[in-house]
Design a binder for these strands. Sequence first.
DNA 1: AGTAGATTCAAACGTTCGTTTGAACCGAGC
DNA 2: GCTCGGTTCAAACGAACGTTTGAATCTACT
Lengths: 226, 226
Amino acid sequence: MALLKAVKAPHETRTRILDAAEELFMQHGFEGTSMRLLTGRAGVNLAAVNYHFGSKDALIEAVFRRRLDPMNAGRLAALERLEKEAAGRALAPEAIIRAFIGESLRMIEDTRGGGRNFIRLLGRTYTEPAKPIRVLIGQLYAPVMERYKAALERALPQMPRDELVWRMHFMFGTLSYTLAATDTVQLIAGVKPEDRYDARLLEERLSVFLAAGLDAPLKSTVKKAA
Amino acid sequence: MALLKAVKAPHETRTRILDAAEELFMQHGFEGTSMRLLTGRAGVNLAAVNYHFGSKDALIEAVFRRRLDPMNAGRLAALERLEKEAAGRALAPEAIIRAFIGESLRMIEDTRGGGRNFIRLLGRTYTEPAKPIRVLIGQLYAPVMERYKAALERALPQMPRDELVWRMHFMFGTLSYTLAATDTVQLIAGVKPEDRYDARLLEERLSVFLAAGLDAPLKSTVKKAA
DNA sequence: AGTAGATTCAAACGTTCGTTTGAACCGAGC
DNA sequence: GCTCGGTTCAAACGAACGTTTGAATCTACT
């Protein structure tokens, strides 16, 4: 029957390539990772990437889709769960923030499944110069961002729309930089190594920091400097 | 006499190369920018980069040093000016933040001199995978970071050192992401185009947001989830 | 005018890149 | 037992890469 076909390791080669790509793209970037290095690490033939994915660019897209689609679905689900529980009452901004960042942070504890590799790769990619990748990321994120923007607008009805959009940018920047750069460019000494991958602690620190920034009182007048 | 040599355009070729590199590295990344594209844009011969800088890597380093050395010197000077004015009294955290980010933001208004290109390039580079570049950036920033960390420790004596270091990371991430990604990954729709390069407005928004996050009250106990 | 040093130039160097090719291999279905 | 679609393989493709070369050109000083 159709149900029984391909029992063992249905897409093993595909998966091995995706896993190796995740790790190597994170370490060396897209252009810095050659097909020979990648296929060597994955233990597959050089031609396997082009056979299974078509091209290197298509592989990059597949790497993102594999993780980002469920992650963003999780973000939407978390927000809806939150709104259901609230049953019409206003949501606390910090709860919305936690729903958004929690999904990323939980992946950073996943050392086995390679989720951490992906999260750090993702953080890198927000500032990626290559245009097709930027467009892809933008497309994959657009629905989530719209949804969270709407939720925050309801949670902070008194805040001007302009200001809220900027603060969302700030929040998003903090998250992506924290995920991507804390263990690469060590600009500020003093982070305890054991705290670096403690997702629970990081979620606490981030959400407290971000919630305060998001709720910061507006200065009604821009003070004029001398 | 030795004083009179090379009167007109002392290092014109060097400067043209640095300017082109700044722009192209920002647009296409380091590996995505070939020497042929770069020298073509600069209007110089293909061999000029190797003649004047030695190698592509050395050019990259020169690009950063040209802007980062004076920028970080400016940051140190701004902080010292602040402390001198305070004459021993405690500094407001927000003032320290403004001293730090102001130096970057002023460059983003410099469309003529290419400062904006560099600032955006810099934002990209914090998440750069290539190790030599990470090391270089770390070296160039280390003294400034130590200095600002000390200043913030004095301004916020009640805050645990661990927490402060993380919050500095968050702040730095927000700044670099904001500078790097505002017009590339437009994840959140709604930013008015005319506000995007208004350094004055951006400094207001950023410093209010960051100061609130930095000052956020600590949760004394990490609440336990079910 | 002549020369030495610095700079520019066109051309080529060897290497590595992503991709393609066509044969070899595999496991299930008539 | 044989065939056939799916997959893997070694080998090669042309293009693009960073760098080097050696002659040509320019500039400043005797």
